[in-house]
Amino acid sequence: MPFDVDNLMARVRQAFGITALPDKPSAAKKPNDAPTHSHLGKTLPDWTTAVTTALAQVFSPTASQPYPFYLLTTGTALALGWVVYRGTRRFPTADHIPPRWVEKRKPIRGRVVRISDSDNVRIYHTPWLWFGQIPDLNREYMKKSIHVRLAGVDAPESSYFSMPSQPFSAEAKEWIALKLRDRRVKVIPCGKDRYNRLLGMVYVRSWFGLWQNVSLKMVQAGYATVYKQHGAQYGGILEQLERAEAMAKRKKRGMWSQDLKVYVSPAEHKRKHLRGEDTV
């Protein structure tokens, strides 16, 4: 038995209180008419017209029972509102990043606005629907930027408090400044440390438009070691980091060009001079 589309459309119109469509006058079939699909019970153009007309009446605001129209418009408005909310939601600091965002490792994009030291930077979060200008933060940078600790690496320490600087600390900071200053970056969260800094893998685009992992590049250049202390996060690239460090040592790149007999790791240097206050 062929599928009766007219009967189906009549039932749909009856269910939603829609006035029946006027019957089309029959016409003799011409040689150029569209072929009849017997399993549909009518020609394909007529079937398409019937379906689209019925749906238009069902979702019309002038229908006798316009509930489908209200549901469609409400659902569309809610969906668009959710997209706009997610696309413009900005996190001023690491404190504002929800735990589930970090757990799901959702990317955070923004512009680097400050190089704190060789393995700490601050970024101004710019969501994907955010088109504003980045303000001059001045002294308010701590309240309006996300403090990011580069995950998986430890760079030579600069001088602060009573701790002297390490060899190649200035070169390491210069390297990361050239790499990241005022650049747009993508941060893949790996967690947060006890100071609520965001531990993340920072990515910056190369000249060819490809994303480069800054932690990996820094180890390859010989300006950072693989961080092996408590709470270390590697974003799934620990083996790559270890191979990069071994290669940098063999090639005597960066800090590995010094006499390794007197080499002191950044973690050991901090323990010695800060008395274990902070080894991160």
Rank of each mutant, 00 (worst) to 15 (best):
N7I: 06
D33T: 10
I18E: 02
Q14W: 03
A27P: 02
I18M: 07
Q14T: 10
T43S: 15
T43W: 01
V5M: 15
G17F: 00
R13H: 00
D6N: 13
A20I: 01
T19N: 06
R13M: 01
H37N: 14
L21C: 02
A15P: 00
G41L: 03
K42H: 03
L40I: 14
T36W: 07
S26G: 09
P25A: 15
A20L: 06
N32K: 09
P22S: 08
S26H: 06
A20W: 00
V5T: 12
S26F: 07
G17E: 00
S26Q: 11
A20N: 08
S38L: 08
R13E: 00
A10F: 05
N32W: 10
S38D: 12
R11M: 09
G41M: 04
F16D: 02
A10S: 14
A15M: 05
K30E: 10
M9T: 10
P22Q: 11
L21G: 04
V5I: 15
H39K: 10
K30S: 08
H39C: 05
D33E: 09
V12T: 10
G17C: 01
G41W: 01
T36K: 11
P25G: 05
L8M: 12
V5H: 06
S26E: 14
T36H: 07
F16Q: 02
T36G: 03
R13V: 00
A10L: 05
D33P: 08
L40E: 03
K30M: 11
K42V: 14
K42I: 14
D23S: 11
S26V: 11
G41F: 01
R13C: 00
A27K: 07
R13T: 00
P31E: 15
T19S: 14
G41E: 02
T43G: 12
L40Y: 12
D23G: 09
P31V: 13
A27T: 13
L21F: 06
D33Y: 05
L21V: 08
K42T: 15
K29Q: 10
L40F: 13
T36C: 07
A15I: 01
P25E: 15
Q14H: 08
V5D: 01
A28G: 07
K29E: 13
D23R: 09
V5N: 05
T19F: 00
D33L: 04
P35Y: 04
A34W: 03
L8E: 11
V5Y: 07
G17D: 00
T19Q: 12
A34E: 04
L8T: 08
T43Q: 11
Q14R: 06
N32C: 04
H39Y: 12
R11E: 10
A28I: 12
A28L: 10
L8S: 05
T43V: 06
A28K: 11
F16A: 05
A28T: 14
P22F: 04
R13K: 07
S38Y: 06
K30C: 04
P35W: 02
A34G: 02
A15K: 11
L8N: 02
R13L: 00
M9I: 13
S26A: 15
T43F: 01
S38M: 02
P25K: 13
V5P: 03
D6E: 14
V12G: 03
P31R: 12
P35E: 15
F16H: 14
M9K: 01
K24E: 14
K30I: 03
K42W: 00
P31Y: 11
N7V: 07
D6G: 14
H39L: 08
P31W: 11
L8K: 06
A20F: 02
